[in-house]
Amino acid sequence: MSRIAYVNGRYVRHAEAAVHIEDRGYQFADGVYEVCEVWRGQIVDERRHGDRLERSLRELSIRMPMTRAALSQVMREVLRRNRVRSGFVYLQVTRGVARRDHFFPSPDTPPALVVTARNVAPETGDRGAETGVGVITVPENRWDRVDIKTVGLLPNVLAKQKAKEAGAKEAWFVDADGFVTEGGSTNAWIVTKDNTLVTRPAEHGILKGITRQVVLDMIARNGLSFDERPFTVKEAKEAKEAFITAASTLVMPVVRIDDTAIGNGYPGELSRELRQQFHDVSEMDPV
């Protein structure tokens, strides 16, 4: 079966899907995106992803390409046509197509919308969680507004490629003061020796992850000790546990940072418990 994509009002074969060469997403990275997990025929945390999409668009003064209800229907149609029951649905909105100019185009320029979907077996992530993953640390070199989920991801791409070449899954950015900000595509967490979960505040300097918020909900529901504050690389390497969170990884245990094993070098108990509980706490909407 051919994969199907939605591109600016049309459902087309994935192999033939294309955008205009003067789409501002291509020319300027002038756009935003969201990725939602699809789990057993349900879209995970669709409402929260939609809220964040709208916020990102507002911050860049880009109009929503259609109503939330219409966008939800497009997502479901793409999932249906691709027969995706477990995997991901990706949506990207740019400022649209216009003559290349740094200034915004005419206000009546319609935003451009692309939606794609792909199957990924849940067992794929579960296998990684059984052994845990490694991360490396890299200097923070991104622009100041990483709270906006833009398609301008070149520093992230370079950091994650460096991690791959080092045999790791993720790269953690480290600011000038030695504190971890976040991963190339994930939020960063540690568990201290006294079982306190720690992650950086999301008001500034990191993306407010949807999976991060679900973990916060689990922390509240289970009455776990929590401290929302920055942590250093040194503190992370001395932690009892560490993990990363994102729609693409859920709660993924970290067992190595650079060349240092975390805890006993195996996925920690708290990280594994949070992963197991995740879909019981997240919001589910049938496809």
Rank of each mutant, 00 (worst) to 15 (best):
N8W: 08
G183T: 09
G132S: 13
D177S: 13
L113V: 03
G9A: 09
P267S: 02
T211A: 08
H20G: 08
S185P: 10
D101W: 08
Q27S: 14
D285P: 00
Y11E: 00
G223K: 05
V151T: 15
L113M: 04
W189S: 10
V7C: 05
E22K: 13
V115F: 04
A168W: 05
R221H: 09
Y33P: 08
M218D: 06
S282M: 05
D177E: 12
R145F: 08
R275N: 04
G178P: 01
V135R: 12
D227K: 13
E130Q: 15
R55C: 10
I62K: 03
A29E: 07
V146Y: 10
K169W: 07
T150H: 15
R221M: 09
R272G: 01
W172Y: 14
P65Y: 04
Y6P: 01
R55G: 11
R40G: 03
R24L: 14
Q277N: 10
A5V: 02
P155V: 03
P110N: 00
R48A: 02
V133W: 09
Q276P: 03
A246F: 00
F278S: 05
S86E: 02
G178M: 00
R13Y: 04
K193M: 13
D126H: 13
G178N: 02
I219K: 03
D126T: 11
Q213D: 12
T186V: 11
F231C: 10
D147C: 12
E182Q: 07
V281R: 04
K162I: 06
L57I: 12
I148A: 09
G134M: 06
E16N: 11
W143E: 05
V84P: 05
D108H: 06
I219A: 05
Q161S: 04
P253L: 11
R127M: 12
V89L: 02
R95T: 12
G9K: 09
E170W: 00
P267M: 02
R63Q: 09
G134Q: 07
E22L: 15
D144V: 14
D126Y: 11
G178I: 01
V12N: 01
M252C: 01
G183P: 03
M75P: 05
Q161L: 09
I136M: 12
R200C: 14
N8T: 10
V146S: 11
R221P: 03
R55W: 15
E283I: 00
Y11W: 01
G184C: 15
H20Q: 11
N264V: 03
P230G: 10
R58W: 13
W39H: 07
S225Y: 02
P253E: 08
L57P: 12
T199H: 15
V93M: 11
V19Q: 10
V120H: 00
